[in-house]
Simulated assay, not measured.
Amino acid sequence: MNGMAEPVTTLGDDARSATVALPATAQRGALDIEYRWLNTHLTDAPLAVFLHEGLGSVAMWKDWPQSVCDRLGMRGLVYSRPGYGRSTPRPHHVKLPVDFMSVQARDILPALLDALDVSAEERKRMWVIGHSDGGSITLLYAAAFPDALAGAVAIAPHVFVEDISVASIAEAKTAYEQSDLRSKLARHHDDVDSAFYGWNDIWLSDAFRSWSIVDELEYIRCPLLAVQGYDDHYGTMAQIDTIAQRASHTRLAKLDNCGHSPHRDAPQALNDVIVDFIKKHDGSASA
């Protein structure tokens, strides 16, 4: 499971974008996953894995994961989920299932870590940091593998469906079809329609209105930080308040003058709270 394509982008000596092949299983076909390592020279440092938003990719993170890893003295792993970036696109006739985020947490991410030879010991020291849909996947991974990570950070996650989320996602569809949003996203995805409609169609489906991962939150035992902006138009504070109700050890961070993307809207405030939290729970991280 270690076959690797030639790098498609090189950013310095140890920030490299490439693809790794995940073989077919009974549940899915073979996949190519775009990924990038950060700070590989820190060979003994813990690993931070970054999970992107519903329309994100390796490239769309820009330099934010690097800034977090540099402040913490950690290695980093950034990757594009199937259907996004340079990873295997979603076939247009295939609709995402209601539990697509659970599949990512319990199947795709563990398979990627296996393919990249991330050992069980490394995973116990690993932090998972996710934004939006990636934040939800972070919570699901922490619930499914409670003894296999050091901690988790969920940024603007979804744990149930709110009307404000559906309304904003419907507005995004209008923007995609009537403005330059499609051309902007096309810079970052090999199949932009696959990426957009895979995300948009499932979120706007009737079946998804009852989606919830609230019950799974009670299985999270690792240190957990949940972050949300007060001006988030894709979800309210009820999302992270619910996390704290179900996983009482959760630390909440509520950011002023911040929308759905704290790493873009309030990067300094977000970095400060993440670094402070991880330093308190991981003695091997350095600032």
Rank of each mutant, 00 (worst) to 15 (best):
G3Y: 13
A5D: 10
A5N: 15
P7W: 01
G12L: 04
D13F: 03
A18S: 05
V20K: 06
R28M: 14
L31M: 15
Y35S: 07
N39D: 13
T40E: 03
T40V: 04
H41A: 08
A45G: 04
L55Y: 09
K62W: 10
W64F: 05
Q66W: 10
V68N: 07
G76L: 15
S80M: 06
P82D: 15
G83E: 09
Y84F: 14
S87T: 06
H92A: 15
L96V: 03
V103E: 10
R106S: 10
L113P: 11
V118A: 08
V118Y: 12
E122F: 13
G130S: 12
H131G: 04
G135S: 04
G135F: 09
L140F: 05
A143N: 04
D147A: 08
H158E: 03
V161S: 00
D163H: 03
S165V: 01
K173L: 03
A175H: 01
D180Q: 02
L181S: 03
R182K: 14
D193M: 01
S205F: 04
A207Q: 04
A207W: 03
S212T: 10
S212E: 04
S212L: 09
P223V: 01
P223A: 01
Q228V: 08
H233I: 15
A238P: 09
D241N: 09
Q245R: 13
S248H: 13
H249K: 08
D256R: 10
H260E: 13
S261V: 15
H263L: 04
R264Q: 04
P267T: 07
P267M: 08
A269P: 03
L270N: 01
D272E: 10
I274M: 14
A285D: 00
A287R: 01
